[in-house]
């Protein structure tokens, strides 16, 4: 039965990743560990962003907003009252802000929870009407969150941002939650909910004609995305140990969009592959910014060349693999034998 084989493939990958995390944490150097942490966090963001954009086919620009919410909720709950006292330099913080405190797990859960609540609020006006309002609404939402962060310094310390966030994030947290996120998304996709989401993507009218509650399908996808984006934001705050509003701009969302399109819109495996290529690749390509030796001739340092080459590679890949690297396929499809042909 193919199902059993798929489960074995997935399971062995999960154990492989867990083993890798254990080894990496003990033997790899700080820099590599930092990059792996980034990859883990962005994997969480990418697989959940892929759920609404790729699997459900609803074009959304929400990540920077929900990640910001998650980052700020976690930061406010983790930074100590003393640290808050001397950090809030624009105006004094509200008393409730000073009293906010929780442990890491609670902070992450609340980050996800608040993001999900806001996603629910957005879902009702956007998904009840037909039409492509989601992109505009989420784009505006991201801006509003950033403006809120800047203009309410009594809560967020404005553009100064929050520093001295305890560094709770390590490979066990980021990697572990990444595994949970991937498994959750895959379990959703391989269930009636995932089928409904794909049906909405493929043909919304036909989906309705088959009894699918398309509003519910879209809302589930959007809220799940928001939840993991909030948690990812919390992990990011506890990794960088300092956050500020300028971190959560449109370019942040754009980066994730590149990742999921490159990996294959609709494929969870693709989102993971895309994250590794983009986050790992752009660091690996730093040598392009430095002087390089060619047959005895040394080129001068050209900062920014790295990004030019990166963009060229992206264009190249999209020209030859228009559906992204994985297309809509998942890991198990790579191991399948010859496709059963339809006669």
């Amino acid at each position: 039965m193919t199902v059993k084989k798929d489960q074995w493939i997935n399971l062995s990958f999960v154990f492989g990743v867990i083993g890798f995390i254990g080894i990496a944490n003990s033997f790899f150097d700080e820099y590599t560990i930092r990059i792996l942490n980034n990859i883990a966090i962005f994997t969480i963001l990418a697989v959940s962003y892929n759920l609404i954009n790729g699997v459900t086919g609803q074009f959304s620009l929400e990540p920077n907003g929900f990640v910001a919410i998650g980052a700020y909720v976690t930061a406010l709950l983790l930074v100590s009252p003393e640290a808050k006292q001397y950090q809030y330099a624009i105006v004094d913080p509200y008393p409730f802000v000073l009293s906010l405190h929780a442990n890491f797990v609670v902070a992450l859960v609340l980050s996800g929870f608040f993001a999900t609540c806001l996603a629910l609020v957005l879902s009702f006006p956007v998904f009840r009407v037909r039409g492509d309002y989601l992109a505009i609404v989420t784009l505006g939402f991201g801006f509003i969150i950033k403006i809120f962060a800047i203009n309410y310094p009594e809560v967020t310390n404005g553009s100064l941002g929050l520093n001295d966030i305890p560094e709770f994030s390590n490979l066990y947290w980021t990697g572990g939650i990444a595994i949970i996120a991937v498994i959750t998304v895959l379990n959703i996709v391989n269930s009636k909910f995932g089928r409904a989401m794909k049906a909405v993507r493929d043909d919304e009218d036909a989906a309705i004609a088959m009894g699918v509650n398309t509003f519910k399908a879209k809302t589930f996808a959007f809220c799940t995305s928001a939840f993991f984006e909030g948690v990812g934001g919390g992990l990011l705050a506890a990794l960088l140990t300092s956050i500020s509003p300028d971190l959560f701009d449109f370019f942040f969302t754009f980066q994730l969009l590149i990742i999921i399109v490159l990996g294959g819109l609709g494929s969870t495996t693709g989102a993971i592959v895309g994250t590794i290529l983009v986050m790992g690749g752009s660091e690996w390509m730093r040598f392009l910014d430095e002087p390089m030796k060619f047959f005895g001739y040394t080129t001068p340092a050209m900062p920014g060349l790295r990004m030019v080459v990166f963009s060229l590679i992206l264009i190249f890949i999209m020209l030859f693999a228009r559906e992204g690297i994985m297309g809509k396929k998942e890991l198990k499809d790579l191991f399948k034998g010859r496709k059963r042909s339809a006669k």
Binding site: D29, Y31, R34, I35, L239, L240, D289, P303
Partner: peptide, 22 residues
Amino acid sequence: VLIDTKGDKVESANATTRLISS
């Protein structure tokens, strides 16, 4: 040893870690 941050916070963090550990 010069590392470009693109003005970005995440890259600043990466750059600092790389300079110190590598």
